[in-house]
Design a binder for these strands. Structure first.
Lengths: 121, 121
DNA sequence: CAGTATCCCTCCAGATACTG
DNA sequence: CAGTATCTGGAGGGATACTG
């Protein structure tokens, strides 16, 4: 709890993305929604299901999301332990994003969503 | 461009603001997120899993959501065919909300979300 | 290349008041 | 009881310019 709190506070101070949600997360499912409920979150995760991607790749494939919004989304997912950021000290810099096991494990959940949507749409 | 077309049905072509979603819904999963991704949507659905509820009941159980937000949420879910509104001509009016089969069928999806959350939190 | 730093504006969420 | 009507702050998010 205290960790979450400090993260939230830090996010607000730096004017970064703070996901919309009721002020109290009373149910564990809210955490899942917090992770994939953002405007761009799911699209990023979907890209990363196909493997490691770089910042520029994501920006190009995801309908020209602005760098600011993409950064905010990536930070939020990273703080939730869903993806991992790796910077290589090349010139110029190379940064790669990949899903963590926790992120990979979203697959079942997203599959269930896909099943529901396929059935009713 | 005509600014005021029917708002919810033409998500794909409009350049207008679409809340919480990229302007193009390219993937069926986006529909699932559209249904449960709202700030209050999931909480309402969760209540209705326990059976038919009235407006006032929902308002009381869901941490004092404002009537406007609750109405907006209920309308949105109704338009998506997830729940059903029934008004009885009593005095004063009695209105009941219950999940449709489509809404009941969200159960698997939500179960998957719960499993993921339980595993990682 | 992969981001920051700004500016700016849209636009909902929530509060409040009112009503059939 | 079950909603509408109305107002508003401030955050969400885009555009652009800049940088290590």
């Amino acid at each position: 709890m205290s960790m979450l709190e400090s993260e939230q506070t830090k996010l607000q101070e730096t004017n970064n993305y703070v996901p919309k949600q009721p002020s109290h997360i009373e149910c564990s499912i809210e955490k899942a929604l917090d992770v994939i409920g953002g405007k761009w979150s799911f699209l990023v995760i979907r890209e990363l299901f196909n493997g490691t991607k770089r910042f520029g790749e994501l920006q190009r494939t995801i309908s020209s999301v602005s760098p600011k919004s993409l950064t905010d989304t990536l930070r939020h997912l990273e703080e939730n332990g869903v993806l991992e950021r790796t910077a290589y000290p090349t010139v110029p810099v190379t940064v790669e994003y990949k899903l963590t096991p926790k992120g990979d494990d979203l697959h079942q959940m997203i599959k269930a969503m896909k099943l529901w949507a396929a059935k009713w749409y």
